[in-house]
Design a binder for these strands. Structure first.
Lengths: 203, 203
DNA sequence: GTCTATATTAAGATAGAC
DNA sequence: GTCTATCTTAATATAGAC
């Protein structure tokens, strides 16, 4: 759909995307139905299709809206900062994303799991650029002896993997941990230890 | 379906499950169709339904068959072995599973991502028992000073997360790494470093 | 902009012949 | 055990009134 002009359009567009996030993240692209999305958003199905021409269009609009926010924490890594604290701060930012935006995390997980059919261009574009950029920064830090030698891109993968796990596999995490645990609080401590030990240079 | 008796039944049952693994792991439960599974298995749809009463039945049979093999590497961790090498060996076994059985990994990832509706009993049962068992072993190792103090269950989570990432997010990994990389070979080195640094006691 | 009604297709499952 | 034909339901999408 074209840019919304009125307040009503604005509000409806947003509540559609919010409902779509709910439903797509829970059932995946093909498992989600327009009926469900219409239901959650409080609009009728034809009305929903007045705002977005198709199921695909809703999904794409949603992905586009989220991708920026998803890449952003990486962008914030500061080449001029202290290496270990910079990376620990990035880990914490990613973990906060998992904690507060688990639906977004699961939406991306779903998409990539199926081979990233609808976002491989963004992964190969905007995201890869950011990763390459920060990988270079990390390489510099390593060559300066301010960071233990590790393969930079795999370091980034491991940060994604470890932080997103607590959102994506939330169901499993909670069952295994049982009652009386705050997975994210415990994860923060554990991951801080892990990356500190891994990255702090040993002379 | 009941236990297959003839060779033909044996062969068809197997080729159905193999086709189902292909299709379910690629599209998730709801995204997969019996038409696709029948197609891949080389049987007609009604014939497929002669072997398994429903889509759900195919999926459940597949999950059941795979769950044992999936939990097994954890079972193999030896309480009487040397702590750090035992855990490194477990990491390697899991990574080999990801490398050689990525469809299985993605099938489980899909299932858990959707809230584990069909395997929460196994996760809360067989798997949790194994995890609790090995967590106790790890705790003992820590109290003996043979392993750095880390929360045992989160250690296990991190092993799952880091190894399965290379199967589940394979699409992203390959795009970001670009040409000329063997993700799994590089992962083995990196994860060995990571867990060695994390776990080796520092006096 | 929003609705009711409906066209169209796809998917899970069954009937019944062979 | 396997097939063709078909039933039934559910899902995407559109038509057209208001």
């Amino acid at each position: 759909m074209t840019k919304p002009r009125t307040r009503i359009q604005e509000r409806n567009s947003k509540s559609i995307l919010d409902a779509a996030l709910d439903v797509f993240s829970k059932h995946g692209y093909r498992g989600a139905t327009l009926d469900q999305i219409a239901d959650v958003s409080g609009l009728s199905k034809p009305n929903l299709l007045y705002y977005y021409a198709s199921k695909e269009a809703v999904y794409k609009a949603l992905l586009d809206q989220l991708l920026i926010a998803w890449i952003d924490p990486l962008r914030a890594v500061n080449p001029l900062g202290e290496p270990v604290p910079e990376i620990l701060a990035y880990v914490r930012r990613k973990l906060e994303l998992s904690r507060h935006f688990p639906r977004e995390s699961r939406l991306f997980a779903n998409e990539i799991l199926q081979g990233a059919p609808r976002i491989s261009d963004v992964i190969g574009g905007e995201l890869k650029i950011q990763v390459d950029d920060k990988a270079a920064v990390i390489s510099t830090w390593i060559s300066q002896g301010r960071l233990n030698p590790v393969p930079p891109v795999h370091l980034i993968f491991s940060i994604w993997s470890l932080t997103q796990h607590y959102a994506d596999f939330d169901a499993q995490v909670r069952i295994i941990l049982g009652e009386g645990h705050d997975p994210f609080a415990e994860a923060e401590d554990y991951l801080t230890t892990l990356f500190t030990k891994l990255l702090t240079p040993t002379p």
